[in-house]
């Protein structure tokens, strides 16, 4: 495997995940980029920065080096609240409301495109 380092005989494959250090680095930010006018901002990745201004500067440098965007948002990762519909029963029921879908209605062909 190209960048994976093989485990030498007698070594453990386990990898440490923390140094136990209390030190906090720069906070993490989520980056959203609008590729062109007329479409929404899309999540493109994340980065570290000390403040919003540098988060924006970094986003420009890191994620739009090849002219990928016309507008950039940055959001502190800890400010993102998530909801996982697959895990929520009430959402499954909401999904079953087929009358919300256009395909639930029969319109005769001769009426044309609707």
């Amino acid at each position: 495997m190209t960048y994976e380092v093989p485990v030498a005989p007698g070594e453990s494959a386990d990898i440490e995940e923390t140094t136990g250090s209390e030190r906090e680095g720069w906070p993490l930010w989520e980056v959203f980029v609008r590729a062109r006018r007329g479409i929404s901002h899309v999540h493109i990745g994340s980065l570290h920065a000390a403040d919003p201004e540098s988060a924006l500067q970094n986003a420009r440098d890191v994620y739009t080096r090849r002219g990928e965007g016309v507008s950039v948002w940055v959001v502190p990762s800890e400010q993102v609240y998530a909801f996982e519909p697959e895990a929520a029963a009430d959402y499954v029921e909401a999904n079953e409301k087929v009358y919300r879908l256009a395909t639930a209605y029969d319109i005769p062909d001769e009426v044309g495109q609707m």
């Binding site: 440490e16 995940e17 923390t18 140094t19 250090s21 030190r23 680095g25 570290h48």
Partner: peptide, 10 residues
Amino acid sequence: GVKRDEMQEL
């Protein structure tokens, strides 16, 4: 769930 700084330190 691993931090970048921690990975670099390691």
